[in-house]
Deep mutational scan, measured.
Amino acid sequence: KNAAQIVDEALNQGITLFVADNRLQYETSRDNIPEELLNEWKYYRQDLIDFLQQLD
Rank of each mutant, 00 (worst) to 15 (best):
I33R: 00
L37F: 07
N32Q: 13
A4T: 05
D50K: 12
L48H: 00
D50P: 04
N39S: 10
I49K: 04
F51Y: 15
E36A: 12
I49F: 06
N2K: 14
Y43V: 13
L11Y: 11
K42C: 15
L17C: 06
F51C: 02
A4R: 14
Y26H: 05
Y26E: 01
E40Q: 08
E40Y: 05
L55P: 10
R45C: 15
I6K: 01
E36N: 10
A10V: 02
E27H: 14
F51H: 07
Q25F: 15
Y26K: 01
N39K: 12
L17W: 02
D8G: 12
I6P: 00
D21V: 05
D21W: 05
T28E: 02
L55W: 10
A3D: 01
F51G: 00
Q13W: 13
N22D: 11
E40K: 07
D31Q: 12
Q25P: 01
D50S: 10
K1S: 04
N32H: 14
L17Y: 01
Y43H: 10
I49E: 04
G14Q: 05
V19A: 05
I33C: 02
V7N: 03
S29K: 12
T28K: 03
L52E: 00
I15S: 01
Q46W: 07
D21Y: 06
Q54V: 09
L37T: 05
R45D: 09
N22F: 06
P34E: 05
D21C: 13
E36V: 10
D56E: 13
G14C: 10
D56R: 11
N2Q: 11
Q46H: 09
Q53P: 03
A20D: 11
K42L: 14
L11C: 14
I15R: 00
R30E: 07
W41E: 01
K1L: 04
I6Y: 02
R30F: 06
L37M: 11
R30Q: 08
A10Q: 01
D47E: 15
Q54E: 11
I49Y: 06
L11R: 14
I6F: 02
E27D: 09
A20T: 12
A4Q: 12
Y43F: 11
T16R: 15
K42H: 14
A10F: 03
D56K: 12
E36G: 08
Q13H: 13
D31G: 11
E40N: 04
W41H: 03
V19W: 14
Y43L: 14
Q13R: 09
L38H: 05
D21P: 00
A10S: 04
Q5I: 07
L11M: 10
L17M: 05
L24N: 00
I6E: 01
L24G: 00
N39Y: 10
L48E: 00
F18I: 07
Q46T: 08
Q25D: 06
L11W: 12
D50M: 10
D8M: 15
D56F: 07
L55G: 11
N12T: 11
N39I: 12
L37A: 03
L48W: 00
Q53N: 13
